[in-house]
């Protein structure tokens, strides 16, 4: 992330073991850079008693052990970190790019038609709008490090399901409100599932458990239902790794 002065912030008590820091500038991108820059700084400073920071869009939850540090001390730390943001480049790693093959509709995307109807556009248009956008991972959310992203350029926000599903499969590609997401693990969910990727996203034998981090880039690519099996068992990896191999295998197998 580039050098920038932190957006103005407000700090709220959130119990005896956490603080919520909210960036309140008019510019959402600035708020996002501020809370993620602050989370990275807190992570790197290695202060005793700090458990970690959970940054999302405009806020970051800072968790700590109240036996080791007080809320007042953590608040002072946060203010120092916000000042430091403007002085250092932070963790300036270039975003990595991920290509996500998706089967849309049918059993893979049971809500695709519902979304199309609600938007007043065709199913093909929903797929087109979903695949033509380049997505920035805004934050890791529940469950299990889901990549939370700003959604496609649909005409209007997508309402959540009235009756959330008790179980949504891993790899489900979903939209809600103005947001888009992939589900790394099986979980209940109220978002509209428009497709599914055959790639596995979560690997609890690996650290980090999900391959992307906030700031990375995702693109969705439509594949045919009959090609779903070809990708199964493969992991989502930064572009240039796994998918290139698959393409080679596929072209090699062609008569």
């Amino acid at each position: 992330m580039s050098v920038l002065a932190a957006a103005p912030t407000e700090i709220y008590e959130s119990g005896d073991s956490a603080l919520r820091v909210v960036a309140i500038s008019e510019v959402s991108e600035h708020n996002w850079l501020t809370v993620h820059g602050l989370a990275d700084w807190l992570e790197d400073c290695g202060a005793e008693g700090l458990h970690g920071a959970v940054p999302t869009y405009d806020s970051v939850l800072v968790e700590f052990d109240p036996i080791l540090v007080s809320a007042r001390q953590v608040r002072a730390f946060v203010k120092l970190g916000l000042l430091e943001l403007g002085r250092s480049a932070g963790s300036a790693t270039a975003p990595r790019e991920f290509d996500v093959p998706v089967v849309y509709g049918g059993e893979f995307g049971p809500d695709l038609e519902r979304v199309a109807q609600h938007q007043g556009i065709s199913v093909d248009d929903v797929i087109r709008l979903h695949t033509e956008k380049t997505y920035t991972v805004r934050c890791l959310g529940a469950p299990a490090g889901s990549p939370m992203m700003d959604g496609p350029a649909f005409p209007k926000p997508v309402p959540r399901l009235k009756d959330p599903r008790l179980s949504v499969p891993a790899g489900a590609v979903a939209v809600a409100g103005r947001q888009a997401v992939i589900a790394p693990a099986v979980a209940p969910g109220g978002w509209c599932v428009i497709g599914q990727t055959p790639l596995s996203v979560l690997n609890i034998r690996r650290e980090p458990l999900v391959p992307y981090k906030p700031g990375d880039i995702l693109r969705f690519r439509q594949i045919r239902a009959e090609d779903f099996g070809q990708y199964q068992g493969l992991e989502l990896e930064p572009q240039g790794l796994v998918l290139a191999d698959v393409d080679r295998e596929k072209s090699g197998a062609r008569p």
Partner: peptide, 12 residues
């Protein structure tokens, strides 16, 4: 108003 997803503390 719609609230953006954010970190919630244990005990919320």
């Amino acid at each position: 108003g719609e609230v953006l997803s954010r970190g919630v503390p244990v005990g919320a």
